[in-house]
């Protein structure tokens, strides 16, 4: 089994993500620089970490979404490789079009850094089957642009198809219908604003994020 973490200039949760992957899977991921035009051979899981790629210039995730490595990530996603984007990684996935919608400035205009209570809406995907449907979990958020928006038709469609993976129990950032994380139609791409890689060990305060990686690695490896 092999994982890859994509690193952009301005990524700052790449090492947290690597540490979480290693802690759960027992094997450190390959760190892949954004200018690379290939993934290491045999990668079974790709993580796009949080941070502020390219300083959030133009729009959060906009520049990173056009980098050479993302074209390869897109091909892997289309072949069915699981791809997880957290925070800035979620923003990048929407900018690439692998996930619908867009992440806009928080309704409050403030950077929000706190624990968020989430309801697991879909516990059938490779990422979420370690949870129970309807279960409440706690995962930290830390973002300025986490306000998920898209038009009503797309919202109805993704709700109807079970693509909403996680929903905030409180209004954290103004997201349409409280959406905190969404899957693509095939269910192998997950984008979420909360940081599961920051809820891995006892010292983090809770270990609810660990179960996402445990469930995923059980399915993938």
């Amino acid at each position: 089994m092999k994982s890859a973490v994509i690193v952009f200039p301005g990524s700052n949760c790449d090492r947290d993500m690597a540490s979480a992957i290693e802690s759960v899977s027992g094997r450190a991921p390959e760190m892949v620089w954004h200018r690379d035009s290939d993934l290491p051979a045999g990668v079974d899981f790709i993580a796009i970490p949080g941070g502020f790629s390219y300083g959030d210039y133009l729009r959060s995730g906009a520049m990173a979404a056009r980098s050479p490595i993302i074209a390869v990530v897109r091909e892997a996603a289309e072949r069915g490789t699981p791809v997880l984007g957290v925070c800035n990684g979620f923003q990048i996935l929407t900018e690439t079009g692998l996930l619908p919608g867009a992440l806009m400035r928080n309704k409050s205009m403030h950077f929000t850094c706190r624990d968020a209570a989430l309801r697991v809406e879909n516990a059938r995907s490779v990422f979420t089957h370690g949870y129970d449907e309807g279960e409440t979990i706690h995962v930290p958020v830390a973002h300025h642009d986490g306000n998920y928006q898209t038009d009503a038709d797309v919202l109805d469609r993704i709700e109807g198809e079970g693509q909403v993976a996680f929903r905030y129990l409180d209004d954290i950032n103004g997201s349409a219908r409280g959406i905190a994380g969404i899957l693509n139609a095939k269910g192998n791409v997950l984008g979420m604003m909360p940081h599961p890689e920051r809820a891995i060990e006892k010292a983090h305060g809770n270990m609810d994020g660990r179960r996402l990686f445990e469930g995923l690695f059980e399915k993938v490896f």
Binding site: L58, R66, T94, G101, A102, Q149, T150
Partner: peptide
């Protein structure tokens, strides 16, 4: 391709 996100 880049300057605008035509979703929003």
């Amino acid at each position: 391709k880049l300057l605008a996100n035509t979703v929003i």
